[in-house]
């Protein structure tokens, strides 16, 4: 992690829906290559913030930049520099494995030759050469999620946003998924991840915990456990949210 380089800068971010304040003056920074965990109870405002940072929704006010671009004026540029995957939707089930890769890589404007070479390499690394011509619908969830992650970072974005990527995934595959996250971070990709598994919060370099639209705590897992006199992140979370 490179603490010197900030890739996400958020100053006093506010998002209102009518009278309801979903994000109330959020301020934080995320550094290059960092694994940044974004936690909070259901309805705390995580998805709202995530959508703004991905350039999908405009904030009501605040100064926010993502990968060096302004979220008000440069949203299309932001989208090119980030990757995104979620638990709910990741790949097209009625397309084959290699077709999904080609589709996503094509959308990001990568050349055919490059796509072909990188696809072979990717499938080999994941041990998925054998399913190249299978439909996504035929793959177990854990494989799909690993593939979806690799597709999300295929164009080498500076930041990848992961929205509950491991929900419902078996415990071994869940850990293999975190190996992929860790490797991406080693390669300098910043990882912004939400999760409900509190053991996963421990794998993050820093975590931010939201509660009722505000940031309640931010720091390394070690700092937060010390501050809340908790033996693990589960306890930290429960102390904050209760």
């Amino acid at each position: 992690m490179n603490r010197k380089k900030t890739v996400i800068r958020v100053r006093d971010m506010v998002k209102k829906f009518g009278d309801f304040t979903a994000n109330d003056r959020l301020s934080f920074e995320v550094y290059e290559g960092e694994i940044f965990g974004f936690l909070g109870a259901n309805g705390a405002g995580k998805t709202t913030a995530l959508r703004i940072l991905c350039g999908l929704s405009l904030p009501t006010s605040g100064e926010i930049s993502v990968a060096g671009y302004n979220v008000y004026s440069d949203r299309e540029k932001i989208k090119k520099r980030i990757g995104y995957m979620s638990q709910k939707f990741s790949l097209y089930e009625d397309l084959k494995v290699y077709e999904n890769i080609r589709l996503y890589a094509g959308i990001y404007g990568l050349s055919r030759k490059y796509i072909r070479e990188r696809t072979d390499h990717l499938l080999e690394t994941l041990g998925l050469e054998g399913v190249r011509n299978k439909l996504i619908a035929e793959l177990p969830l854990g494989w799909r999620q690993k593939l979806a992650f690799s597709v999300a970072v295929f164009h080498q974005p500076s930041i990848v946003f992961l929205d509950e990527p491991t929900g419902g995934v078996d415990p071994i595959t869940r850990r293999q998924f975190w190996d992929l996250i860790y490797r991406a971070s080693q390669d300098g990709i910043t990882v912004f991840v939400t999760t409900h598994y509190m053991d996963e919060a421990e794998y993050c370099d820093r975590v931010c915990i939201m509660e009722a639209g505000r940031i309640e705590a931010i720091g390394t897992p070690g700092e937060l456990k010390g501050k809340y006199a908790a033996k693990n992140m589960d306890e930290v979370f429960i102390k904050i949210a209760r």
Binding site: A41, G167, H196, M198, A241
Partner: peptide
């Protein structure tokens, strides 16, 4: 409890 936060799960 799927997709439910740690506190609501408890």
């Amino acid at each position: 409890t799927t997709g439910v936060d740690a506190v609501s799960r408890k």
